[in-house]
């Protein structure tokens, strides 16, 4: 389910402070199998994995960049582009599917003008479909960052978008 790698956008990347990445790498440098925790830690810091940082990790951990990109593109969790301030995730697991998740997804697409794993140009929203958030009893389920919204309806989508449109971007 990973997004496609778009390396062309590199020119637009803002200045990246590599020392933050170094701090994360230092923490894990002596542990075996440290590539995943390093990438996870770095994504926590930057919100995504900037290309220069990926190359830097390759150098410091002494692995081929191809191995790093192999891992980055394999797992849905890693992102190669900056993400929105509000991450909207709609569950499309089995329980949510039979309770009407598809229409919730489509309404979000419609309201936000973006598709799965895309970010609005103003970096306000990123939208993602996810498989089972583990709260199937409240299907269909949506999450915005850490807040959970259960028993979703099309009307509630409107309310949520209206609410988050009001919130500050920083």
């Amino acid at each position: 389910m990973s997004e496609s790698v778009e390396l062309k956008t590199e020119e637009q990347e803002p200045e990246i402070d590599i020392s933050i990445a170094d701090a994360v790498i230092d923490k894990y440098i002596n542990i075996s199998g440290n590539l995943m925790p390093v990438l996870q830690g770095i994504q926590d810091e930057y919100g995504y994995i900037p290309r220069v940082v990926a190359d830097h990790i390759a150098e410091r951990l002494n692995v081929y960049p191809s191995q790093i990109y192999g891992v980055l593109t394999f797992y849905a969790q890693f992102h190669l582009k900056p993400r929105g301030r509000f991450i909207i995730r709609v569950c499309v697991g089995t329980a949510c599917h039979v309770q009407g998740a598809p229409r919730i997804v489509e309404t979000f697409f419609d309201k936000l003008g973006i598709g799965h794993a895309e970010t609005t140009p103003d970096l306000r929203y990123t939208f993602e479909k996810v498989a089972c958030l583990g709260a199937c009893g409240m299907a269909p389920l949506a999450m915005v960052n850490d807040s959970t919204y259960g028993s979703m309806t099309v009307q509630k989508v409107d309310d949520i978008v209206a609410d988050y449109n009001q919130r500050p971007l920083k």
């Binding site: 389910m1 075996s32 199998g33 440290n34 590539l35 995943m36 990438l39 996870q40 191995q67 192999g70 891992v71 394999f74 797992y75 849905a76 969790q77 890693f78 498989a131």
Partner: peptide, 20 residues
């Protein structure tokens, strides 16, 4: 990191080792 197949035991171990 979000991959269903990692529930399979050999894939899971590859993942712990830091591979795809």
């Amino acid at each position: 990191a979000g991959a269903f197949v990692c529930g399979e035991e050999t894939a899971l171990m590859a993942s712990i080792e830091g591979h795809r």
